[in-house]
């Protein structure tokens, strides 16, 4: 599955792992904030109209 990375295997894999974790973190954070804000706004709009 994983190609032969020679003696630097650990470095390469850890670089990929660190980057993917960081990317997922920023995506997840942005997503959560977006959902939270949308819900809050919807309840506020509903209160205003209802």
């Amino acid at each position: 599955m994983i190609p032969d990375l020679g003696k630097y295997g650990f470095e390469v894999v850890s670089a990929y792992a660190v980057s993917i974790v960081l990317l997922l973190a920023i995506i997840g954070l942005s997503w959560r904030q977006s959902v939270k804000q949308r819900r809050a706004l919807e309840t506020a709009e509903a209160r205003r109209h209802g």
């Binding site: 920023i26 995506i27 942005s30 997503w31 904030q33 977006s34 804000q37 949308r38 809050a40 706004l41 506020a44 709009e45 209160r47 205003r48």
Partner: peptide, 23 residues
């Protein structure tokens, strides 16, 4: 994509703030 998503969040936050002030 991330900047668009986050900007939309900020716009919603701004709108929410305005609504709350009005309330």
């Amino acid at each position: 994509a991330l900047v668009l998503l986050r900007t939309r969040t900020e716009i919603r936050a701004r709108r929410l703030r305005a609504l709350q002030l009005r309330e």
